[in-house]
Write a protein that binds this DNA or RNA. Sequence first.
DNA 1: CTATGATCATCC
DNA 2: GGATGATCATAG
Length: 202
Amino acid sequence: MTRDEAIAKLAGLVGQDLRPLADTYRVTVWKNGKKNKGWAGDVVERFLGLPANPVQGPDFGDWELKVVPLRKVGGRWQPKETMAVTMIAADNVAATPFEHSHLLDKLRSLVICGRESVSEKDDHARFVKAAAFDLGDGALYRQVQDDYESLRALIRHGGLASVTGRIGLLVQARTKGPGHGSTTRAFYARTSLVARLLRLES
DNA sequence: CTATGATCATCC
DNA sequence: GGATGATCATAG
């Protein structure tokens, strides 16, 4: 499926509640009182016909699908959270300039979707919008590159453990994983970047 | 166990 | 109230 085809298909999802779709696609939302935090993303993937897979790389060959929670603030939508982009493998990042990084792979061409977030319970979650995004080669590209190279320099000198979530204007590195003392980290897009990806301004 | 999908919970 | 660090379900 091409990116345009996906966007066209997702347009038919706008305004619909994702929650009942979770049941039709048999996506777990709650289990033993715990939430499956990625349920909305899983539902949209199934909707597009993508089976679940944990491969590090673009989901559809040359573009990446993301779903982010949105909140309505003063009549306009805003990202509720930062967005996880991809895992950091310290050795790989240390040896890889931005031009060849997984981070650029994921950001250069993506389909980003917004869904409403009413409460932690997620009784319902309307699909708000889908947008295509290309990083291009302008100021935004350079700022993301700056952030990446800052993190990369830090990893090279102090190791992955020296990285904290404070680094980076648009992209940061934070812990991610199964939890319970995990030390793995991932790149996250800060909310300001998410807003630009989704074109929430204007 | 670690990757995917992400959001939760706590601290400042 | 936002940022930082921790965590959940599932698949391979």
